[in-house]
Amino acid sequence: MRILSISSGKVLPLFGNHHPNYKSVASAIHKKSISNIENPISVEINHLGIKGDEQADLSVHGGIEKAIYVYPAEHYAFWNELLTRETKKSVSLEYGAIGENFTIEGLVETEVFVGDKFIIGELEFAVVKLREPCFKFNAAVAYKGASKAMLQSGYSGWYLRVLKTGTLTAGASITLIPGSRDTSIAQQNKSLLGNRNQKDLWE
């Protein structure tokens, strides 16, 4: 279990026709890798996440409780195949394209529970909750069904709270310290999917 890439982004206009009320909105969903296996640069992590990383809407992203968004690299093949099929273009997403800060390998949603702790280098993190996708994700990947596909697949990723700050470098190993193990990220996703199906809320 390790970090393959650390990514950061700035708030920029996000264009798309994936919401009836918006043609352009502010978003920092487009993250770029600033530390990876090929170029392992040290990155400063504080209680609000990666130093210099931005979020446009702090009600749904960022802050103490959603400081770091983690996404498993194992899911990238799913997205490349889906988006290539649906957009009729060859798609090969780079790490950070899902909007994540940490792209990791070796852990997925069925193995991660709310309250688990991650020890990465000298830093400590706590698992908070899954990521709930919205229309901005649809616009970012140019496919109006992307948010629905994220929930239906269970490939949501999750948010971390920063318990101990410091610097991290891509390639760092991850040690998982189990919490109470009451609710996994996959179980949260299943519950959210059920609620959205009842309300038909996919915008």
Score class of each variant (00 low, 15 high):
residue 1 M to P: 03
residue 6 I to E: 00
residue 7 S to D: 02
residue 7 S to K: 04
residue 8 S to V: 05
residue 12 L to G: 00
residue 13 P to S: 01
residue 17 N to A: 11
residue 19 H to D: 06
residue 19 H to V: 07
residue 21 N to Y: 13
residue 21 N to R: 06
residue 23 K to T: 10
residue 27 S to C: 01
residue 27 S to Q: 07
residue 28 A to H: 08
residue 29 I to Q: 11
residue 30 H to Y: 11
residue 30 H to N: 11
residue 32 K to I: 14
residue 38 E to M: 12
residue 41 I to G: 01
residue 44 E to F: 05
residue 46 N to G: 12
residue 46 N to D: 15
residue 49 G to E: 09
residue 50 I to Y: 08
residue 52 G to V: 11
residue 52 G to Q: 12
residue 53 D to R: 06
residue 55 Q to M: 11
residue 59 S to D: 14
residue 61 H to V: 05
residue 62 G to Y: 04
residue 63 G to I: 10
residue 65 E to L: 11
residue 67 A to K: 05
residue 69 Y to F: 09
residue 71 Y to C: 10
residue 75 H to T: 09
residue 77 A to I: 10
residue 78 F to K: 06
residue 79 W to G: 06
residue 79 W to I: 05
residue 81 E to C: 02
residue 81 E to A: 10
residue 82 L to A: 14
residue 84 T to F: 08
residue 84 T to M: 07
residue 86 E to D: 12
residue 87 T to D: 11
residue 90 S to I: 14
residue 94 E to S: 13
residue 97 A to V: 11
residue 97 A to N: 09
residue 101 N to M: 14
residue 102 F to Y: 15
residue 102 F to R: 09
residue 104 I to N: 10
residue 105 E to S: 15
residue 108 V to N: 09
residue 112 V to R: 01
residue 112 V to Y: 03
residue 113 F to V: 05
residue 116 D to S: 07
residue 117 K to D: 08
residue 119 I to G: 00
residue 122 E to F: 13
residue 124 E to Q: 12
residue 125 F to V: 00
residue 126 A to P: 00
residue 127 V to S: 05
residue 129 K to Y: 00
residue 136 K to R: 04
residue 136 K to V: 07
residue 138 N to E: 03
residue 139 A to R: 04
residue 139 A to H: 01
residue 141 V to S: 02
residue 141 V to C: 00
residue 142 A to L: 03
residue 151 L to N: 01
residue 151 L to P: 01
residue 154 G to N: 08
residue 154 G to K: 02
residue 163 L to C: 07
residue 168 L to H: 03
residue 171 G to M: 02
residue 171 G to T: 09
residue 172 A to K: 08
residue 172 A to E: 12
residue 175 T to W: 03
residue 176 L to A: 12
residue 177 I to L: 15
residue 181 R to Q: 09
residue 182 D to M: 12
residue 182 D to A: 15
residue 182 D to S: 12
residue 184 S to G: 02
residue 185 I to W: 02
residue 185 I to V: 11
residue 186 A to H: 00
residue 186 A to N: 03
residue 191 S to F: 04
residue 195 N to C: 03
residue 195 N to G: 12
residue 197 N to K: 13
residue 201 L to V: 05
residue 203 E to L: 12
